[in-house]
C-alpha cells in the first residue's frame, strides 16, 4: 500500500492512535497500554503484514519514555513507525512484542538493560550487557561520576 492508503487504513482501524505523516515514515503514536493490540494487527493483517521489525529503540524524553518500533513488510515493502509513550517514569513498563517478532526479544532486553523499561511478559528479561545494579545509562538523569565525563 502507498503511504496515503496506509494513513487512511490506520485512521479507520486505530481511531485512538495519532497517525502522522513523518518526514520519512508514516508514524503511529499511541500510549503504552494500547500498543500491543495495534502491533498485533500490524503483524497479522493480510493487507499489512509488517513481518520484519528492523529497529526497536527506547528514548528517554525526561518526562516520559517512548519505545519506537520500525516495521517493514517484506511482502509489500511498505514501512511504518510505531511509537508507544510510557508516561510512568518511576516504573516504566510496556507489553513485549517478542511474541510477534522474535528479534524483539533481544532488542527489548537491550532497552531494558540501558533504559530500565520493563517489558511485560517477556520470556527472558535479563540484563544483556551490564551487571545488576549498574543503573540505566541511557537515561538522561544517569550519573556516573567515575567513568562519565561531562563536556
Amino acid at each position: 500500500m502507498e503511504k496515503d492508503q496506509l494513513t487512511e487504513f490506520f485512521r479507520n482501524r486505530f481511531p485512538d492512535a495519532v497517525i502522522e505523516q513523518g518526514n520519512q515514515y508514516l508514524t503511529i503514536k499511541t500510549d503504552a497500554a494500547a500498543m500491543h493490540p495495534i502491533a498485533a494487527v500490524l503483524k497479522s493483517d493480510k493487507e499489512l503484514q509488517f513481518d520484519y521489525l528492523f529497529n526497536l529503540t527506547g528514548i528517554d524524553w525526561s518526562d516520559r519514555f517512548s519505545v519506537v518500533y520500525h516495521l517493514e513488510s517484506t511482502v509489500f515493502g511498505h514501512e511504518v513507525v510505531l511509537k508507544a509513550d510510557i508516561l510512568n517514569r518511576e516504573k516504566p513498563s510496556v507489553a513485549t512484542v517478542s511474541d510477534l517478532w522474535r528479534t524483539a526479544e533481544f532488542h527489548e532486553r537491550e532497552v531494558y538493560d540501558l533504559l530500565g523499561i520493563e517489558f511485560v511478559d517477556h520470556p527472558d528479561l535479563r540484563r544483556l550487557f551490564l551487571e545488576d545494579g549498574a543503573g540505566f545509562p541511557l537515561r538522561k538523569d544517569f550519573k556516573d561520576e567515575i567513568n562519565l565525563i561531562e563536556r
Partner: peptide
C-alpha cells in the same frame, strides 16, 4: 520465515 522473524539480515 525464521530469518525475517529473527531479523537476520
Amino acid at each position: 520465515a525464521e530469518a525475517i522473524d529473527y531479523g537476520v539480515t
